[in-house]
Amino acid sequence: MKPILKAEDLQVAFGGVIAADRVNLTVLADEVLAIVGSNGSGKTTFVNVCTGYIKPRRGEVYFGNTALSRLHPRAITRLGIARAFQIPQLFAEHTVLENLLLAAAARRGFWRPFSAISRPCYLEEAREALGLLGLEGCASQRAAQLSEGTRKLVDIAMALALRPRLLFMDEPTSGVSSDEAIVIMEAVMGALARAGITTVFVEHDMEMVRRYAHRVAVWESGRVVAQGQPHGILHDSQIRESIAGMA
C-alpha cells in the first residue's frame, strides 16, 4: 500500500513540556490506523499538528508531496484532510441539516453571495451525509439540543460531507455510553469503508481498536513506542502495561 501521510521527525513543545518527541509515522492509503496511549501522551497533539492547529517546532508532515506544517487548518481541509473532534464542534444555533448544508457548501461554491444554501445539490449531499450515519430523524433539530452521542455523529457527518481523502477522528466514542459507542462506531466505520476514506482515529477503548483498526500506533510521552497489527500489539504485555493507565 502507498503512504498517504508521512510525519517526519516531528517535535512539539508547550513551554517546557514535550508533546511530540521526534515522531516518525506513516499513514497508508485506505487503511484504518488507531492511535492509542495514556492521557497526555501526545495523541491529540499529533492530530492538531497534522490538521494545522498547532505548528511543530521542527519536523514536517507530508500529505502526498505537500508539506503541511505551515498551512492553516482551512488550507489543509481543502487539500482533502478532514477532522472530527473529541468535543463536537458544531454550529449550536443552526439545525443539524443547516450544519451539514454549510459543510456541503464549504466543499464547493461557498463564496456565492446570492445563491441559496438550500439549493438541491447541497440538500442532496447534506441528506446523504446524514443518511450515512442514520441521522435523518434529527435533521431539523437545533444542534444545541442534541444528546452528546448524536452531537458526536453530526460532528463526524460534517467531516464526511467534505468528502475527504483522509479523516482524523479524535476519540469518536468518548463521553458516550458503551452501548451507544458500539452503534456509533458500527455506523461510522461502515460509512468510511464504503466511501473508501483513509482513517486515523484516536481511541482509548481497546475493544474498538481490536474491531476496527487495521494497524495500531502506541504513544508514550510524545513518542510512538510501537506499531503493528492490533492483535500482535495488544497482546504484548509491556505495551498493555504502558497504556493501562489511559482507560
Binding site: 487548518p73 482551512r74 481541509t77 466543499r107 461557498f110 453571495p113 446570492f114 441559496a116 444554501i117
Partner: peptide
Amino acid sequence: DSAMGQGLGAIATNEIRLEYLGI
C-alpha cells in the same frame, strides 16, 4: 440565505469548525 450569510451565524457560534470546513 446564501452559504455566506449562514456562515455569519456560524462564525458567532464556532469559528474553529468553519476553518475546519475550509472556510
